[in-house]
Design a binder for these strands. Structure first.
Lengths: 210, 210
DNA sequence: CCTGTTTTGTGAAATAAAGAACAAAAAACT
DNA sequence: AGTTTTTTGTTCTTTATTTCACAAAACAGG
């Protein structure tokens, strides 16, 4: 198992670029096309592929279609991935409406909230009480959850998810969640990302002056 | 200038943890408290601090208040940072309503959109036509922008921002933006984050079986 | 005031990631 | 058929990051 996160992220980016290239009519690509597209060196592209046993043709590059297929297999996207969302606040709402997941084969199967005013059992994406999470997740064998609840509730909602059999989590609450080793957590922290941009902009300015 | 992004991200995390610790009544902390809080080793904490000239007291640890202050200075948070948002779709909307920025000293000054139906000049956060971006940004000397427009529009909106004097961007459009070297871009790509979780969950499963 | 303990700060060692370089294969051209 | 060119796949090198390890400082207790 390859544990290098940035390598996996690059694979996703390659795949994205390949979709665009295919739409433009490309049938084959070379490592430097892909490198260019995602902003790395060609040798990096080849090394990434080599790590996952993806091979092309010397002088012929890579077949776009087969490459996309292989990447999808590696990234676990052979069938639609079902995920649940906890918390129908700002972020939860945006996620439910977000169209970007579909085309990546990701489907939000349900949203869970504590507020009964939000329940909506018959919606395209049903909004259900937290208590129903266990049955729902188990019967559908869902493995991935998104945490979009307020900070204070995040850890307890996570624990609930784990009890349901969830194995991987995308967390929007700006704190570190405690999880067993075999559980995967990715954090999206908007404040932090902005803060980071701010730091580098300021640092840039200072360098210029000094 | 320190260019190590993950180091800066850790600084932000330390700061977050420190706020929590202070709220709990802590007056001083040790490197291993912070290490524990954000999930790294104590030596990492000390080295990070040392890189930025932050020093504590041998055997006495670090003063929480002064530490927070120093981190704020480093992270450029002495005064409120004003940012603009382009695109009042799902994500733009969620950002405008999101309460998490305030407490980090980040303020969304305005949102810009192409759709005249969305304009709302008198709102707490005004929604303005894209054409007004230049005047607005220049008069307020805003340096940071958020891109929350559809893929196809992202590059042109970015170029517009740069023409206005924006120096750093947080980009939600799932593609690589082309920018001059001195411009900072951080990408938040939700599909990609989820895909990443999915990969590691699948990889985990396979390892267990194999 | 001395001894023992704790915790920092940093230089050296280990690990991980990225980049360069090049042989080998495949196609294209003559 | 042979030569040239292109592009992969992989090994070796370099660079970056993390971790270890320990001396020096600060405090506590006797």
């Amino acid at each position: 198992m390859i544990t290098n996160k940035s390598c996996i992220i690059r694979l996703s980016r390659y795949k994205n670029s390949l979709h665009r290239l295919r739409a433009l009519g490309f049938v084959k690509v070379f490592s430097d096309n892909l490198a260019d597209a995602i902003g790395v060196l060609p040798s990096q592209v080849r090394k990434d592929f080599s790590l996952f046993g993806i091979s092309g043709n010397k002088r012929g590059g890579y077949q776009v279609d087969t490459l996309i297929e292989k990447l999808n297999t590696i990234l676990g996207k052979e069938q639609t991935q079902e995920v649940i969302v906890a918390g129908l606040g700002n972020i939860g709402n945006a996620l439910m409406k977000y169209r970007g997941f579909e085309k990546e084969g990701i489907r939000i199967s349900a949203c869970f909230d504590i507020d009964s005013a939000k329940y909506h059992r018959e919606a395209a994406i049903p909004v259900l009480p937290l208590e129903e999470m266990k049955d729902f997740v188990r019967s559908k064998r869902i493995k991935i959850g998104v945490i979009a609840v307020p900070d204070i509730a995040a850890q307890s909602v996570l624990d609930m998810m784990l009890a349901c059999g969830i194995k991987g989590v995308l967390n929007f609450a700006p704190l570190r969640l405690r999880v067993p080793e075999d559980i995967v957590v990715n954090n999206v922290n908007l404040e932090l990302e902005l803060e980071n941009v701010i730091y580098f902009v300021n640092a840039q300015e200072k360098t210029k002056v000094g």
